[in-house]
Amino acid sequence: MSPALTTAKNAPTGRGPARAVPAVRIGRVHKVFGRPGAPGQAVLDDITLDVRPGEFVCLLGASGCGKSTLLNLIAGLDRPTAGEIDVPGGRPALMFQEHALFPWLTAGRNVELALRLRKVPRARRRPEAERLLELVRLGGAHGRRVHELSGGMRQRVAMARALAQASDVLLMDEPFAALDAITRDVLHGELTRIWRETGVSVVFVTHNVREAVRLAQRVVLLSSRPGRVIREWTVDLPQPRRAEDPAVADLSREITEELRGEIRRHGRT
């Protein structure tokens, strides 16, 4: 059954019986752009990472670490040069930094299109779209045009559309980076709530350390050019968290130091 349609609670990570099959399995993935004859620079180098079902993982890194490339690979929009990516639950949902809503459709129709492409029968699409909009606190916005919505509302519609895919895995590519701080803060809270209500696995890409610490159960730091996993942190703090919580701030400082060190390394060469 699709997690978006149930209200499974998130099993505490690392425990529970469903330990065997990860939601996403990334095994020794390499990615080099360019043609076979003239390979360019490596973007991803030997990435190995498993995402447990219902886990919230943040991929953190500076520019050029291949975060977005990795998401594209998981989403199946691109193929790795070497290595394996397995998403047992089928095609993951993907949210972009831009809302990517279709402007020729209303907010509700955008959600319904995702349902339609998933072959949900016509009669069930409208109520299901209403329910998903309700979930992102946009009940009543079904008939609104995309351009009439604020940036934060657009991203929430995009979230509803992604959830409409009823995928086990939700990939998010810096979805809140273009929003102002207060809106972003609100959406962090909403995302945490929705993640807990739906039990979906989230892979969230960001270059914002505090965002990562606020949201994730696990923060994975990637190096730049090529992207490699440098270090991982398990964030064992209760949700909902606030960016101002001392524990969040402390861990953010620690990770920021590590990230700065990684960035400095590039200035020296």
Binding site: E148, S150, G152, M153, I182, D185, V186, G189, E190
Partner: peptide
């Protein structure tokens, strides 16, 4: 507080940003 009353804060943001037609 964004953490205590996200719905109220979110509704306020929506009301401020929505474009009247």
């Amino acid at each position: 507080d964004g953490g205590q009353d996200p719905a109220g804060l979110g509704a306020g943001l929506d009301a401020l940003e929505a474009v009247p037609v």
